[in-house]
C-alpha cells in the first residue's frame, strides 16, 4: 500500500513536470489580457484570431507545410529505394553504404546546417525555401531509410520474385508489390519526416533568406517578449504535431 502510494505520487509529480509548460502555454493562449502570466483573467479567443489574421504567420505556415511535404516526399523516395536496394542483394560494401546513408542521424543539426550554408555560399547558391527543403532531406532521408529497411523482409522478397517471374517490370514490382506490402511503414516514415521538418529550426534559420518557415517566424516573434499571441500559435503548432505523431503511431500499430 505504501509502495503504491509512493509510486503514484512520483508518477503524478513527473506528469506534472512534463505537462506544466504545455498547460501554461495553452491556458494563457486564451488569456483575456495583454500578458500570458497569472492571474488568468478569463477566456478569450482574440489571440487565436490575431494569429489567424497575421499575414506573416500564415505565409510562414504555408511555407512550412510546403517544405515539410516536399522534403518528406523526396526523403521517402530516396530512403525507400535505398532500403530496397540494400535489403535484397548481397552487395559488397552494403555495410558501408548503410553507414553512410544513416550517418547524418548522428550529427548535430547545427553542424549540418553550417556545412550546407558554407557550401551554398561558396557555390553562390542563393538561399531560399528550396535550400531549406534540401537541408531537411539531408536529415530526414536517413530516418525514412531506417524505417523502410526495418519493414522489409523475406515476405516481400518472395512476393517480388513471384511478380518478376510473372513478367512484371521493376517499377511495377516496386509500385504494385513492395510499396503496398510495407505501406504502414511508408506512411509512418512520411508523417515522422513531416513532423521533424515542421519543427526544425536551426537548419531552416541558417538556410533561408526572405521566405521563412514557421519556426523561424516564431523565433522573430519571441523577440517581442512574452505575448499571448505566441502562446496561441504555439498551441496550434503543438496540435498539428501531436496529430501527425498520433497518425504515425496508428499507421504503425495497424501493422502489428
Amino acid at each position: 500500500m505504501i509502495r503504491f502510494a509512493v509510486s503514484a505520487t512520483y508518477m503524478a509529480l513527473i506528469y506534472a513536470f512534463i505537462f506544466l509548460p504545455v498547460y501554461v502555454l495553452v491556458l494563457f493562449s486564451f488569456q483575456d489580457g495583454r500578458f500570458p502570466i497569472p492571474p488568468f483573467k478569463g477566456f478569450s479567443l482574440r489571440w487565436h484570431q490575431a494569429v489567424l489574421s497575421d499575414g506573416h504567420l500564415m505565409a510562414a505556415l504555408g511555407h512550412s507545410f510546403v517544405v515539410a511535404v516536399l522534403s518528406s516526399a523526396v526523403s521517402l523516395l530516396l530512403g525507400f529505394l535505398a532500403a530496397r536496394g540494400l535489403a535484397h542483394a548481397r552487395l559488397r560494401g552494403a555495410g558501408v553504404a548503410r553507414g553512410l546513408i544513416t550517418a547524418p542521424l548522428s550529427v548535430s543539426y547545427l553542424v549540418i546546417g553550417l556545412g550546407l550554408l558554407a557550401s551554398f555560399n561558396l557555390a553562390n547558391v542563393p538561399l531560399s525555401l528550396m535550400t531549406v527543403t534540401l537541408g531537411h532531406v539531408v536529415i530526414n532521408a536517413p530516418l525514412c531509410f531506417a524505417i523502410c529497411a526495418s519493414a522489409m523482409g523475406a515476405p516481400q522478397l518472395a512476393a517480388e520474385r513471384a511478380a518478376r517471374d510473372l513478367g512484371a517490370g521493376e517499377i511495377r514490382v516496386m509500385a504494385l508489390v513492395t510499396a503496398p506490402m510495407i505501406l504502414p511503414a511508408l506512411v509512418a516514415a512520411f508523417l515522422l519526416s513531416m513532423t521533424f521538418s515542421w519543427d526544425e529550426f536551426i537548419i531552416a534559420f541558417l538556410l533561408s533568406r526572405f521566405d521563412v518557415t514557421l519556426p523561424v517566424e516564431l523565433w522573430s516573434l519571441l523577440r517581442s517578449g512574452l505575448n499571448p499571441k505566441t502562446n496561441a500559435i504555439g498551441s496550434l503548432v503543438f496540435l498539428v504535431s501531436a496529430f501527425a505523431v498520433l497518425a504515425a503511431e496508428l499507421a504503425l500499430r495497424r501493422r502489428a
Partner: peptide, 26 residues
Amino acid sequence: RRRAMLLTAPALVWTLVFFVLPFALM
C-alpha cells in the same frame, strides 16, 4: 546486384553531395 546499386545510388549520391562534401568543406 546492378539493380541494387542503381536503387541505392540516389541516396548515396545525395549523402555524398549534401552531407559528406559540406562537412569536408567545413
